[in-house]
Design a protein around this nucleic acid. Structure first.
Lengths: 117, 117
DNA sequence: CAAACCTTGACACGATCGTGGTAGGGTTGG
DNA sequence: CCAACCCTACCACGATCGTGTCAAGGTTTG
């Protein structure tokens, strides 16, 4: 399984080497490292880089937006706090879908808590 | 049911009048308007403003972070796209919880699609 | 060994965020 | 009516984001 260096990865993903380091620093795509510290991009990382580029372009997002989503995904406390705040405004009829989403999360946590008891 | 003007609301929430307008522009807390265009903050908005302040401080978030979360909550396409991208990295054992969260969302949408057919 | 790569760290620069102010004009209340 | 409020629309300014470039030094390879 061959891995690409940062310049090669840049060539096949459309990111610049500078941005690949920045994306890594943002915690979004972290390549393996060789024994001497060189970044080694495998197939999975390359795929993630390409789809990340699409994602940002399609919805006009910033890296910081996706980084925040990752933080929410990784930190249940943050996620629940944000969702609870958002839920406090989902009172209009057209917001049922949002309320649904939020309720789903709460249900899951209640189930987890119940199972842990 | 009395409503507060922007200066009064600023007084009881800890935000500045300037920031209340900014928060509204960010789409996070939109007060009602009087017939002449004055902002009228009701109890619900005041509560949301206070809890928003706590939320930002507790997790060191920016308004743009919460605005992005709101956008994800309101736009299923965006939500699914981001979650799918995040899921493509949740392969390590310690990420089961994230994978769980994501799978939950996918399941829900599959169910909705199935129900619509 | 020398060319061509890689590393981290820094400086730079436009764009946006968060926040305050100010100016010009309408509204409210004593 | 007039003082005190509200509105929108700007200008400003530091902090962060996104991005490029450059410097000083280690690694790989022909």
């Amino acid at each position: 399984m061959e891995a690409l260096t940062i310049n090669e990865a840049a060539g096949t993903t459309g990111w610049s080497p500078r941005m690949l380091r920045y994306v890594e620093q943002a915690g979004l795509v972290a390549p393996a490292r060789s024994s001497s510290g060189y970044r080694l991009y495998g197939a999975a990382q390359l795929q993630r880089l390409r789809t990340l580029k699409e994602l940002l372009a399609q919805f006009d997002l910033g890296l910081s937006d996706v980084a925040f989503a990752a933080r929410m995904a990784a930190d249940p406390q943050l996620r629940v706090a944000v969702q609870r705040w958002l839920a406090s405004q989902a009172y209009r009829p057209q917001d049922v879908e949002v309320a649904d989403w939020l309720r789903f999360e709460q249900d899951k946590h209640e189930k987890l808590l119940a199972a842990a008891a």
